[in-house]
């Protein structure tokens, strides 16, 4: 529905493990294709310029902002969105559960993108420090949480129950290091 007149392309790609075969307007952004053509709710739109990260999806195993790619560029790719996290059962996965337990979301609008960035981080770095978590999600804007409980939730998912303690200790150490 985001499309207007203009050239189109036939594209095929894998979305959350399932094949998709469609015609896409060449000018359509991937985010609009996912939302308006394929009916996904997870990736959100929060800006015009690729700064907010609410539209973050995984593209061939790496996160991208789906508002900064064209739908036609998805041809042949494997794309995963936040919809892929909860399994067939619909149960929250470990990361989502940690967000729930640690109040890592308020309005929930940025959450889909934050979860995808966190998942990408944890795939590369099983035990990230608080600083590494902050770096990994700094392409995702959140206006509700001050990021404190997001960092805690990701740390909790990575480090289990000691997550909070670890985050606080690392922050204290960081503060000393900066001021030493």
């Amino acid at each position: 529905m985001a499309s207007g007149p203009g050239p189109t392309q036939d594209i095929e790609f894998t979305l959350n493990g399932k094949p998709v075969s469609r015609t896409a307007s060449s000018r359509m952004l991937l985010i609009h294709f996912l939302r308006d053509e394929l009916g996904l709710r997870g990736p959100k739109i929060g800006c015009d310029t690729g700064h907010c990260g609410a539209c973050t999806v995984s593209y061939n195993g790496k996160t991208i902002k789906s508002c900064m790619a064209l739908a036609v560029q998805a041809d042949g790719a494997e794309i995963d969105t936040v919809e892929s996290l909860a399994g067939e059962s619909g149960d929250l996965d470990e990361l989502q559960e940690s967000f729930r337990e640690n109040h890592g979301l308020q309005c929930g609008y940025c959450t889909s993108g934050v979860l995808m960035s966190a998942k990408f981080l944890l795939e590369r770095n099983e035990k990230p420090t608080a600083e590494e978590i902050r770096e990994a999600i700094h392409g995702n804007l959140c206006r509700c949480t001050g990021y404190v409980n997001i960092v805690k939730a990701i740390s909790g998912a990575a480090h289990g129950d000691e997550g909070l303690a670890l985050v606080e200790r690392l922050n204290r150490e960081h503060a000393k290091e900066v001021s030493a």
Partner: peptide
Amino acid sequence: MLLAAVDYYRP
């Protein structure tokens, strides 16, 4: 937020 009409080609 929405592009003007444009064509696309992937050589």
